[in-house]
């Protein structure tokens, strides 16, 4: 799941400065952003109220099942011709959602994000998310006991812990146990410490040149 957080009302309003005639259309997302409580039905209603309180006219809104899904967004644009009349579109979804809406909007129609996109999360339980993968393009979990050092070590170290471990905890956030201490314990239990003793060469970033794309056909 992609985790998002709301931008402050001030910063959303600031980004909307200079929008002509002030007719706004809203997009929400009924998957990740809904679960994050940032772009579901309730947040769309709240955003509409906030904008109206600040002198904008909200001429409609769409809660798309997956706002990052181009076909769904395109269908929404086709079905609701009022979207074309909006002076601006505000999107309560992750960056991929904003991007998808923007690519369907008219080139003259500005699109604004209402959220900041944070990370790809594992969901520990409802409303509790943590980052376990940073989409690096070269998975090393086979040799790290299922714990990602790129992601869970703030320095992304590949060959063991830094000197900042205090009583097994990370120097950057002392409430987190050091990722490499956890990897060590895991591999020790698996009788696979030899894997940790092996030199890990510098990471190959050439496989993650941006922007990335995949086409199955």
């Amino acid at each position: 799941m992609i985790i998002t957080k709301k931008k402050s009302v001030d910063s959303v309003l600031k980004s909307l400065e200079g929008v002509r005639d002030k007719r706004i259309y809203l997009f929400g997302c009924n998957s990740c952003a809904e679960q994050c409580k940032t772009g579901g039905p309730q947040e769309l209603t709240e955003m509409a109220r906030t904008l109206e309180d600040n002198g904008f006219e909200v001429i409609g809104s769409s809660l798309v099942d997956e706002t990052c899904y181009n076909q769904l967004v395109r269908r929404e644009f086709r079905r609701k011709e009022e979207i074309r009349r909006a002076d601006a579109i505000v999107v309560l979804a992750c960056g991929a959602g904003v991007k998808t809406v923007a690519s369907n909007a008219d080139a003259s129609q500005p699109v604004f994000p209402a959220l900041d996109t944070l990370f790809l999360a594992s969901v520990e339980r409802y409303g509790r998310f943590f980052e376990g993968c940073s989409l690096c393009g070269e998975c090393v979990l086979d040799r790290t006991g299922g714990i990602c050092p790129h992601t869970e070590c703030p320095k992304g170290l590949l060959n063991g812990p830094c000197g900042g471990v205090v009583g097994g905890m990370c120097e950057v956030d002392t409430s987190n146990e050091c990722a490499w201490v956890r990897i060590f314990k895991r591999l020790e239990k698996q009788n696979r410490l030899d894997v940790m003793k092996r030199f890990s060469p510098p990471k190959d970033h050439s496989g993650s040149l941006r922007p990335r794309n995949v086409c199955l056909r």
Partner: peptide, 19 residues
């Protein structure tokens, strides 16, 4: 290079030292 002989736990530190 550097090493922390009083690191706790010491196992991971020793592995890195050897590396």
């Amino acid at each position: 290079a550097v090493v922390a002989p009083e690191a706790e736990p010491f196992g991971p530190e020793w592995i890195k030292f050897e590396k």
